[in-house]
Design a protein around this nucleic acid. Structure first.
Ligand SMILES: [Zn+2]
Ligand SMILES: [Zn+2]
Ligand SMILES: [Zn+2]
Ligand SMILES: [Zn+2]
Lengths: 165, 165
DNA sequence: GATGCTTCGTTATGTTATAACATGGACGAG
DNA sequence: CTCGTCCATGTTATAACATAACGAAGCATC
């Protein structure tokens, strides 16, 4: 039999996602960290999900490969992926989305880029923005209070263009 | 004995807080809702807390008056106070702060004013802002995506002026 | 005093996240 | 080689946050 007969056994995800996983793996390698099998699988699941999955959604899916996966398994992977800037947590949803910031970003793991998220309450879609005007306004407002920003959570709930029929 | 000897039995909170509770009670009455005893006590606890308390912190304190208070007791009160615009939930902390928006606000219960929160990671203090520039920038960014904003969560973590010694 | 509404009590359960400690593999120092 | 160290993971248990469901008590209104 041709060993390339289907590809499903080697690559559990669609080609487009496998490509992004490959990039992510390279990026981690460059930074001296490792995108291990579990971490890679979790990232793949997040990339493949139709809606941002929660930790326990991911856990359930991960059990396809790791029958004994437990909450710490998934939370450790999520922590790692967040530190590496590969995913973001949406606080309002307790759910996770892939970072859409350019993957070839040269900022490195400590990029910690500031993003804003538009969450559609109907279709559940989340769009990541990086709007400079918002950041500037926020910086100014914080500075006026003598406040030093370290981390921002900007999440907007509403209706996406597609759902405003 | 003078019935005004201490005041502690009638008024469990300091005078300044009792005054705010009185205002809140009036505001609710005007809107046709009732700031019942439990709700008033929860609001008082939030106003009196040194740091934003979580639901279970409040529950524990509430048991001073209501020995059998259970999670639904506190969550119902918190829902009410949030609907009335008297408090805000800080998502990052799963904790609650009093609204510092002018209490005499004529917007009514449905005011739903948009606020931003500066959270000090050292002292835990939370400051509520209402910065128009931020709202404008956010509105523009959302509009550019065809997104209709219904609700915003803007929470910034960092160091407050006092803690940047 | 019957009706309808809001509020509250009570029990149970669901959901999200972490603590604590044990295991195993990779890798360089000695 | 083999010891020690680091990192990643396994495993069990529990903490922390939130809601479902149902019934009874208060209160207004007729
Ligand atoms: Zn991003
Ligand atoms: Zn939508
Ligand atoms: Zn407010
Ligand atoms: Zn501070």
């Amino acid at each position: 039999m041709d060993k390339h007969q289907s590809g499903t056994t080697d690559a559990p995800f669609p080609a487009a996602i496998e490509a992004r996983l490959e990039q992510a793996e390279q990026a981690c390698f460059t930074r001296g960290t490792r995108l291990t099998e579990t971490r890679r699988q979790v990232l793949g699941l997040i990339l493949a999900a139709p809606k941002p999955p929660g930790a326990y959604d991911l856990l359930e899916q991960l059990r396809v490969w790791h029958r004994n996966a437990a909450p710490p398994t998934i939370y450790r992977a999520l922590d790692f992926l967040t530190e590496q800037g590969l995913i973001h947590k949406i606080e309002r949803l307790s759910a996770f989305v892939p970072c859409t910031h350019r993957l070839n970003c040269d900022h490195g793991a400590e990029c910690g880029h500031r993003a804003q998220f538009l969450i559609c309450r109907v279709c559940g879609h989340v769009r990541e923005l990086e709007d400079l005007d918002i950041e500037i306004a926020l910086s100014r407002a914080a500075q006026a209070q003598g406040f030093r920003i370290e981390l921002t959570t900007i999440e907007v709930e509403g209706l996406c263009a597609a759902c405003r029929s």
